[in-house]
Amino acid sequence: EDYYQILGVPRNASQKEIKKAYYQLAKKYHPDTNKDDPKAKEKFSQLAEAYEVLSDEVKRKQYDA
């Protein structure tokens, strides 16, 4: 799945936009606030993985290549 789609940001998003999108979605899908939703944990880990790659310039360049 596309990391940009997961975070809901365009491919040319700035680091600030990526961070903002991640924090909004992380708050929304955090397992502690969605105890009754088994998919929230999965969504949250996808968000974390996408953010880890896109927030790191080197990893992001490799991902975009």
Score class of each variant (00 low, 15 high):
P38F: 07
A26Q: 10
G8Y: 04
E49G: 07
K41Y: 14
Q15E: 09
P38N: 09
S45D: 13
Q5S: 12
A65P: 04
V53H: 04
S45K: 13
R11Q: 07
K19L: 14
E17A: 11
A26W: 15
Y23N: 11
Y51I: 04
A48T: 14
E1V: 14
Y23G: 08
K16N: 14
Y51V: 03
R60M: 01
D64G: 02
P10F: 06
N12D: 12
E52V: 08
K16P: 09
N34Y: 04
L7Q: 00
V58C: 10
F44M: 10
K61M: 07
E42I: 14
N34I: 12
A50N: 00
K61D: 07
K16F: 15
L47V: 12
K28W: 07
Y22T: 01
A40N: 09
E49N: 08
D2P: 03
D36Q: 08
D64A: 02
K39Q: 09
P31Y: 09
Q46W: 10
I18C: 02
P10I: 04
L7M: 08
S55Q: 06
K19S: 15
R11Y: 08
E1C: 13
K59Q: 06
L47W: 03
A65D: 15
K39H: 14
K43A: 09
A65N: 06
I6P: 00
K35E: 08
Y51M: 05
K39R: 14
K19A: 15
S45E: 09
G8C: 07
Q46L: 12
D36F: 11
Q62P: 02
D37T: 05
D64K: 01
K28T: 08
V53R: 02
K27R: 11
K39W: 14
V9I: 11
A13W: 01
P31I: 06
L7R: 00
K41L: 14
G8E: 06
D37R: 05
T33K: 11
D37H: 06
E42G: 06
Q24M: 15
Q5T: 13
K27F: 10
N12Q: 09
N12V: 06
Q5V: 10
P31G: 08
P10D: 10
Y51H: 04
P31E: 12
Y51D: 01
Y51N: 02
V53Y: 03
Y63T: 02
Y63M: 02
V58P: 03
Q46M: 13
V53E: 03
E1R: 13
Q15V: 12
R11P: 06
Y51W: 08
Y23R: 12
S55H: 06
Y4N: 00
P31T: 09
K61I: 05
K39N: 13
I18D: 00
L25G: 05
Y63V: 03
Y23L: 14
P31M: 09
A26D: 03
L25S: 05
L25Q: 08
K35T: 11
Y29K: 04
K35Y: 10
Q62F: 07
Y3W: 06
A48V: 14
D32Y: 03
K20V: 14
Y51Q: 01
D37S: 07
D32W: 02
P10C: 14
K41T: 09
G8R: 10
D36H: 12
K43Q: 07
L54S: 00
A50F: 01
Y22C: 02
L54F: 01
K35W: 09
A65W: 07
Q15M: 13
A21K: 07
I18P: 00
K39M: 12
Q62I: 13
L47A: 06
E17H: 09
K59D: 02
S55D: 04
R60I: 01
Q46G: 05
E52D: 13
T33A: 13
K41A: 15
A48F: 14
K61W: 05
Y63R: 02
L7Y: 00
K35S: 11
Q5I: 09
L54R: 00
Q24P: 04
E52L: 11
S14L: 08
D32K: 09
Q62C: 10
N12T: 13
P31L: 06
I18W: 01
L25N: 05
A48W: 13
D64V: 02
I18V: 05
V53D: 01
S55V: 06
K59T: 05
K20M: 15
K43M: 11
S45I: 14
H30Y: 08
S55R: 08
K28P: 04
K61A: 14
Y23Q: 15
S45Y: 13
S45P: 04
Q62D: 12
D37Y: 06
L54Y: 00
I6R: 10
K16S: 15
Q24W: 15
K35G: 11
V58R: 07
Y23V: 15
K28N: 08
R60S: 01
A13M: 02
E57A: 09
K61E: 09
Y23H: 09
G8P: 00
N12G: 06
E49H: 08
V9R: 01
R60L: 01
Y63H: 03
P38A: 10
L25V: 04
A48Y: 13
A48C: 10
V9E: 00
Y23S: 11
S14T: 15
L47R: 02
K43I: 12
K43Y: 11
Q15P: 13
I18L: 07
R11V: 06
Q24S: 12
A40Y: 08
A50M: 03
I18F: 02
R11L: 04
R60K: 07
N34C: 09
H30C: 07
Q5M: 13
A48M: 14
Q62R: 08
A50Q: 00
A50C: 04
E57H: 07
Y63N: 02
N34D: 07
Q5R: 08
P10N: 10
A13D: 00
